[in-house]
Every structure is written in C-alpha cells, then in structure tokens.
C-alpha cells in the first residue's frame, strides 16, 4: 500500500539525455531478450524500472553498463557509444544477493574498488583516497565502519557500503539492481530516501525493483517494462490497473483515494482475478495427476 507524495518534479524531459537507446535488439544464447527498444534517461532523472521476473530488466541495465553487447541498434551514455564497452562515470550497485558475504574484505577495501578507474593503480591506498572514502562513509552514516568486515554489518549498512563504492568515483549516473530486495521495510524506505537526496544533489539514478508501492511513494518517474516499454511517466499517471496488468501479464488492482495510490501487488491478486475454465481435458489431466 502506498502514499504518493505530491510536489515532485514531474517531467525530467527538460534535462539533457544521459542514456539513449535507439532500436536496440539484445539477446544471448540464440534467444532475443528484447528488440527495437528505444529509451532515454535524462540528466537528474530518478527512474524506477519495474516489470516481472524475466522481463529483461537486468539485461537492460547490463546493456547500459556495457556488460552485454547489443545485436543491433545504438546505446549512448554521456554522448559515447557503449556497445560492449564499459562507459566511465557510472556507479553500479549489484543485487545484494549476488555478493559473496563470506569474502574477507573490509568496508574500506570494498569502497576503494570504486576508485579503480581514477586510481594510479598503486597496491596501497593513497592519503587522498583514504580521506575521500572516509568522508563519503561519514556522509552515508557509516563512518566508523571503515575497518569492519562487510559480513559484520546489517542489511541497510551493507547496502550503504555498496552505494559508497558506486558513489566514490563521482558518477554522473547511478544504476542499482534491486536495491530494496533482501532488506526490511524500514531499511527499504531509508535507502530510497537516501537515493532521493542524492538525486536532489544532481545524480541521475536508475533502479530496478519489484516493490511497486515503494516506487509509487518515493520515485518521480517509472518505466513499466516487459520486453518492451509498456508505459513510462509519473507513477500517479502510469500506475493504472490496465498498464500494470499488461506489464505483469496478470490482473492487478490499483486503489486511489485523493493523492493516495494503493497497489495490491500480492500474487494472489493475479490468481484471484485470472479467469480459467475447467474443460473436460484439464479436468481429466487433474484426475491423472491424482
């Protein structure tokens, strides 16, 4: 259930385009994930990419990051063509579940990884690098944890460490894959507030998430994606039952009360509304299973 706040910057299109995909077709292992996709992310935009599992959200992020090469079309980031090369000035936060938490590294060592591109490749951290990391950690409220092992931190603190790694190189664009998954509700809101604050300071942010209510509450721009862009815009306007049902290929209900948007995104909603008939064949199949 979500409350949509009013008074946010509705349209980002006044800004310059930072990421531009034109007629991009992408796929792996002889399987096309999406085709002829065109999308623009503008400077200072804070956008959420939502869609079901398997919709191609993470692949889209990887195309922008240059990890997955495109089969056709062009991908531009900050005016430079990407296609399989890794564009500079991007901070990336992977899904928290993909991190090896048993790996013996300290918070400082993880954050220092984000400085690699700008570093002089010395085996040790310079005094300036240490100061930059310390200042950033303090700004993010985890200043005293620099020498702690990452596995000793709470979920919210761990997410902040990886956010610090992404921010330490002063990126123009911050990409986060599912930053709200695997953390509790309070931490979820704290992370999204923090991202909102960073966005107000000028960082362009693109996140993927499954949490529609968090998007409705915190994000000024949403892109509904399922192998193609179904709709994009202010969650107030985009989050309608037909758009969400098309995006998730399942019936979804949206309740509005004044400025408040409530999205019933529980799986049972889809099952509940899904119409199906018992034909003699499927009844027979059910019987055989018994």
């Amino acid at each position: 259930m979500a409350v949509n706040q009013s008074g946010r910057e509705k349209s980002p299109e006044s800004g310059k385009s930072l990421v531009s995909l034109s007629n991009v077709t992408c796929g792996y292992h002889n399987r096309v994930v999406f085709q002829n996709l065109s999308l623009q992310i503008f400077q200072r935009q804070f956008a959420g990419l939502v869609g079901p599992s398997g919709a191609g959200k993470s692949t889209l992020l990887k195309v922008i990051l240059g990890v997955v090469p495109v089969l056709s079309g062009t991908v531009m980031v900050s005016g430079t063509q990407v296609n399989g090369r890794h564009p500079p000035h991007i901070g990336y936060v992977p899904q928290i579940e993909t991190v090896d938490w048993d790996f013996p590294v300290t918070v400082e060592q993880v954050v220092a990884m984000g400085l690699y591109r700008q570093s002089r490749r010395l085996p040790w951290l310079t005094r300036e690098e240490r100061k930059r990391i310390k200042d950033l950690l303090e700004e993010l409220g985890i200043g005293s944890y620099a020498h702690r092992q990452i596995k000793a931190l709470s979920g919210g603190e761990q997410q902040r460490v990886f956010l610090a790694r992404a921010l330490v190189g002063n990126p123009e664009l911050l990409i986060l894959d599912e930053p709200t998954s695997g953390v509790d509700l309070k931490t979820q809101h704290a992370i999204l507030h923090l991202l909102g604050e960073l966005n107000r300071r000028g960082v362009t942010i693109l996140i993927t998430t499954h949490d529609l209510n968090a998007v409705a509450r915190h994000l000024p721009w949403v892109i509904c994606f399922n192998k193609q862009i179904i709709a994009q815009g202010d969650p107030d306007e985009v989050f309608t039952a037909p758009v969400l049902s098309r995006t998730y290929d399942s019936e979804m209900s949206v309740i509005r009360h004044g400025d408040i948007i409530l999205i019933d995104d529980s799986p049972k909603a889809g099952l509940h509304f899904k119409r199906h008939q018992h034909t003699p064949e499927n009844q027979g199949r059910r019987g055989r299973l018994k």
């Binding site: 990051l65 990336y92 990884m113 690699y116 591109r117």
Partner: peptide, 13 residues
C-alpha cells in the same frame, strides 16, 4: 577486485 566480483570489477574498468 577480480577475485571478489569479476563482473562488477569489469564495470569499474
């Protein structure tokens, strides 16, 4: 960095 997470290391150059 490569030992910790090769895919992300690639993204960071």
């Amino acid at each position: 960095f490569t030992t910790f997470d090769a895919e992300v290391a690639r993204i960071y150059g």
